[in-house]
Design a protein around this nucleic acid. Structure first.
Lengths: 114, 114
DNA sequence: TTGCAATATATAAACAACTTATATATTAAA
DNA sequence: TTTAATATATAAGTTGTTTATATATTGCAA
């Protein structure tokens, strides 16, 4: 299992990226999708997820649409045009981040001064 | 430039990994090594770095050795046996994290229900 | 010789973010 | 009937980071 503190900074980007590829999703589905994609290695907590969703809504990256499903309220979040712009930028940053992490992790002793 | 909030969770692992490969380093050198390895994409702030170093020292993963260089004090941090155990575990987690991020970022529309 | 950039470490106040616990409510299965 | 799964949400407490600040030396340029 990936410790939650590693996920911290990437949560926002992960949420935006999923909404981009999957279309409108509700919070519960987002956590399940992440578990599915990562084979259970990454799990989001609701205490972290909902504040992020609300924040993205507030800043205009997401809009919500409530739906009634089996007497349960589902709140679907989807990207706004602004959200599409933001997600493109964020993914670019995340790719740079992944690349940088790999360089650091792949460093082997001696090679740096070879 | 990679925004600092992405780096947050990985800072501790990055520091441990560098010390593992490079041997004893002082804080200033750590920030420069990270910049070098990532071609300036990732920059550590001292306000974040020093608290992490002190914390790792406190929990027994690092020890310090002061040295006088050109009348400037340099505090070299190096891994303890415990630190070596910790870094191995952390790198494993970081690799899982990188892999998971890539799966999420590489997801393309339609493929998930193809 | 004055001032700026680079070297080198460190702390504190303010802010942001996450964890944990908690609350609510429905449906299906055991 | 009670447990698990579905579904969203907030608040208190904790942790961690940013920003600003302090200190001090060396080397270079004006």
């Amino acid at each position: 299992m990936i410790p939650t503190d590693l996920i911290k900074g990437s949560l926002k980007t992960i949420v935006l990226k999923l909404l981009k590829e999957e279309g409108p999703m509700h919070g519960y589905a987002i956590t399940h999708k992440v578990e599915e994609l990562t084979e259970g290695k990454m799990k989001l907590t609701y205490g972290a997820l909902y504040p992020v969703l609300h924040k993205l809504e507030k800043d205009g990256s997401l809009v919500t649409a409530s739906e009634n499903f089996n007497n349960r309220i589902r709140i679907y979040y989807s990207l706004t045009p602004k959200g599409h712009t933001v997600v493109a930028e964020r993914i670019k940053e995340l790719n740079e981040f992944i690349e940088s992490l790999q360089r650091i992790v792949d460093t082997k002793p001696g090679l740096s001064h070879a």
